[in-house]
Design a protein around this nucleic acid. Structure first.
Lengths: 138, 138
DNA sequence: CATAAACCCTACATATTTTATAGGGTTTAT
DNA sequence: ATAAACCCTATAAAATATGTAGGGTTTATG
């Protein structure tokens, strides 16, 4: 299941996608709309900004805005950023690899092999769904 | 990511699958093989038993054994049992449905719609991989 | 050029979930 | 009879997710 962080990120991105014509949107506005704490949401938006999905403008009249086309923001990217690995096991994660503690020999582990397949097929799904798909379904 | 419970369950099922010819296998044996606490593993095996995947025999010479063909134990079933929902959001879970707290109106939520698609495609993957696939890859 | 609006950062606090541990009771084969 | 193994409930430690607090920095505007 997705963490609240990721859910909030998706809601915020969706909100920004809906308000693309306006130059910037206030944190406060998104927070109130979705009942999220201002400060918590701020952290999330900063992460999204650092990851290159959002831009921001300081000072009076400032706020956040999308700097990519919604079709260029895949779910996989958002989930990885806020929730971490998409793989079901650390030993098959592409971006967050770690050996499994309880595993003696990864090279001969059937679970490992099957989970690599699961990962690849799951990735295909999440890379092919984007913010645009969400916006189109509203 | 899968919880340790689910990982241990997969290891235990795999172990039992490899020792199908023996009538029963001791908890202790599986626990030692994988460095799992006896008691913790016991809980997991009990859950698997209640779910109809394992059988057990009490008394001297007792233990656990598979009561299904490995091909009839899909990953989806093991994951659901120990980890809960496969869906990424409670509002799109087939087996553990709950409305999302922060969602005002599920009927018009694009995130919900897209996550239903993700769930269906993910399920296809996990229902088509079974214990047999793991055993075959060893 | 002062000031208010908004972004940016660090550290800490609370709540929830995961991962066990403890201890004892029940069933069954020999 | 007894030892081996399953079965159950409650509690505790550890890790993670979630949220707060407080203040500093940048910038548009009057």
């Amino acid at each position: 299941m997705l963490s609240k962080k990721t859910k909030y990120a998706l809601h915020a991105l969706t909100y920004l996608g809906r308000h693309k014509d306006e130059k910037t949107v206030l944190i406060q506005e998104i927070a109130e709309e979705h009942g999220i704490s201002h400060k918590f949401l701020e952290n999330i938006l900063l992460e999204l900004k650092k990851a290159g999905m959002l831009g921001s403008k300081k000072g009076k009249g400032g706020g956040y805005y999308l700097i990519k086309e919604p079709k260029d923001i895949p779910l996989s990217k958002v989930i990885r950023l806020l929730d971490g690995p998409i793989a079901l096991l650390p030993c098959v994660s592409l971006n967050y690899y770690e050996p499994c503690e309880e595993c003696k020999n990864e090279a001969v582990c059937g679970i490992n092999k099957v989970m690599i397949q699961v990962r690849d097929e799951t990735l295909k799904i999440l890379e092919n769904k984007s913010l645009e798909d969400i916006l189109n379904k509203e």
